[in-house]
């Protein structure tokens, strides 16, 4: 048997080795990991002070591109954060909402509802999944999502989600050590989860857009529906009102809109469809100018949407104006300045 002194010495050496190893591991992870805008924005949410977000937006790319909490701050003075990634899985949306509500107590939660019709195949969507999951800190919610993903797709390992280096290790071939530096995920975002796109696709609405066709609406995807219902239940438990939101999108139909409206009514939540004619008119959307592609607003469109939506939320939920509150003003005004500069908006 070894003496206790020797034993402690060995233990200390092992701990020291593990620390050095962890340092190198984290450094290498930061060097090789894919840094998508979405991952960064999702991660930067953790940098927001506790209970400082008035409106939380959860969903996928139409939200990511089309809703700007900074524009709303500028116009109405309430705070918000978009936690969205392209083709975000319903499980990820629920996980993001649940972990957000542990730290924030928003006055209202806005859930994007378009994906309720979408069948989400984990075996085909690994890249999209990682955009969202890579930005999430480890939590029981994240572990639940990982379990669901790895059960559905046995090629994927849970370990590669816990330690992203196990997934991105082969990127060593793409790295130029002279130029690429290790970058941790973003700790603070001036965009508050909104990643806008400048390109204008110059599109026209498809013929008969949002006109009744007499056809039945496609069925909801059972998993997506279950996760939205779970999200609504969670918000209800915390006494937070929920808005089911549909943002302007050319691949949308009257029947789908009616089906979601019914779903919202059944679940006792508000439904807001920005493709309904009355809303479109008020928004002043010009399809030839405001779309990035058929599914997403460009910057110009997103500013219109954010101004209109901000007003709607402000009036309906009497959101606070923090613009003169010193606890918010300095940081949010600085972020607005940065945002306006990047977006080319007037300060």
């Amino acid at each position: 048997m070894m003496g206790w002194k020797k034993g402690i010495g060995i233990m200390l050496r092992c701990i020291a080795f593990v620390l050095v190893f962890s340092m190198f591991f984290s450094h290498t992870t930061n060097l090789l990991m894919r840094h998508d805008d979405e991952s960064n924005e999702i991660h930067a949410f953790y940098g927001e002070p506790e209970d400082s977000i008035d409106v939380l937006y959860i969903g996928s790319s139409p939200l990511l591109r089309g809703v700007s909490p900074m524009v709303m701050w500028k116009e109405y003075g309430f705070t918000g954060y978009v936690r969205a990634s392209a083709l975000q899985a319903p499980a990820v949306s629920y996980g993001l909402l649940a972990e957000s509500l542990r730290k924030q107590s928003p006055k209202v939660v806005v859930l994007l509802c378009d994906n309720i019709f979408l069948e989400y195949d984990y075996t085909e969507r690994e890249g999209d999944l990682r955009r969202g999951l890579d930005g999430m800190k480890m939590s029981l919610y994240k572990l639940d999502i990982i379990r669901e993903v790895t059960e559905a797709d046995e090629r994927q390992s849970a370990l590669s989600y816990v330690f992203p280096l196990m997934r991105y290790h082969e990127r060593w071939k793409e790295i130029d050590l002279a130029e690429d530096k290790p970058e941790p995920l973003l700790e603070h975002s001036f965009q508050k989860g909104n990643v806008f796109l400048g390109y204008n696709a110059g599109l026209d609405y498809p013929e008969g857009f949002m006109q009744p066709t007499g056809q039945p609406a496609p069925a909801f995807n059972a998993d997506a529906q279950a996760y939205i219902e779970k999200s609504i239940a969670l918000c209800r438990e915390k006494d937070i009102p929920v808005v089911l939101l549909h943002l302007p999108k050319m691949a949308w139909s009257f029947e789908e809109s009616m089906a979601v409206e019914q779903f919202a009514a059944d679940n006792g939540v508000v439904y807001l469809d920005l493709d309904r004619e009355e809303n479109r008119t008020q928004l002043g959307i010009v399809p030839q100018e405001d779309y990035y592609d058929k599914g997403h607003m460009n910057l110009r469109g997103s500013v219109k949407v954010s101004r209109w939506l901000g007003k709607w939320l402000d009036e309906r939920y009497a959101l606070p104006d923090h613009r003169d509150d010193p606890a918010y003003a300095e940081s949010w005004n600085a972020d607005w300045a940065e945002y306006a500069r990047k977006a080319g908006l007037e300060e």
């Binding site: 050496r13 080795f17 050095v20 190893f21 190198f24 591991f25 290498t28 090789l32 690994e126 090629r155 994927q156 390992s157 590669s160 280096l165 196990m166 997934r167 290790h169 082969e170 060593w172």
Partner: peptide, 28 residues
């Protein structure tokens, strides 16, 4: 020396982690 040994161990582990053929892009 300890430093040399640790360098060898770290080199061994990281060569496995980085250069090992595993993960989604390879057939198991």
């Amino acid at each position: 020396n300890l430093y040399f040994r640790w360098a060898v161990y770290l080199g061994a582990v990281f060569s496995l982690v980085l250069f090992g053929v595993y993960g989604l892009n390879y057939d198991a």
